[in-house]
Amino acid sequence: MINEKEVIIEVVDLKKNFGDLEVLKGINEKIYKGEVVSIIGASGGGKSTFLRCLNMLEVPTGGHVYFEGNELVDGTTDLDAHRQKIGMVFQHFNVFPHLTVLRNITITPMLEKGMSKEEAEKEAMDLLKMVGLEDKANEYPRKLSGGQKQRLAIVRALAMHPDVMLFDEPTSALDPEMVKGVLEVIKDLTDTGMTCVIVTHEMGFAKTVSDRVLFIDDGLVMEEGTPEELFDHPQNPRTQEFLSKVL
């Protein structure tokens, strides 16, 4: 439970168009520190675009995104510095294929935070142990399975000591037998109190891991609530229709 409600990300009237297509139509939302928020909804409804606006991978067409009180949209803040505190995990892993597993993790802390090689590698090895990849440290990512790549991508983001982690359908590109291992890593992370925003199609996972669930459809947050409220007693007809299809 979150007792002290400290806002870490605030989104005000967020809009995003791709050409003539309105993908986000004005979203207002607050993410609180330590909270685990899952975002569900049909493909094309704007879930991923919403998530990608939180670290400005998509530049919003209108509205505001505040991260720890700093406005990200107006272009006056140092985006790189803020992004270091916003970890992101992608559907297709996006590990760096030309770098070893270890270097994948250490490169950004060393380049952007001036961390020493020894320090960065020590920390990276601890992170790799955490996800059971310590024996792969000197391999290249092509030797890893999808699940291993995704676990690498997660610890690569953690190496920057983020204040919040964004997950964009982290298990959608995985073979079924790989899904569990990755979800366990995310579950462990949420247990440490890490603030997480997770776009997912894994309804069972969303139900067990989340403090709050958002149903995004047609560019708007149609309904939100605790997992029990949203999954067991959906109020909005669109939510009901969506859940009847996926559950």
Partner: peptide
């Protein structure tokens, strides 16, 4: 792949480092 740039930038890597360390190689 565009995802390489996105991953690097999401980690907070500068556009210069992203280009020289991730994309160019």
């Amino acid at each position: 792949d565009k995802g390489q740039t996105e991953a690097a930038r999401s980690l907070g890597m500068s556009s210069k480092n992203c280009m020289m360390q991730i994309i160019m190689p």
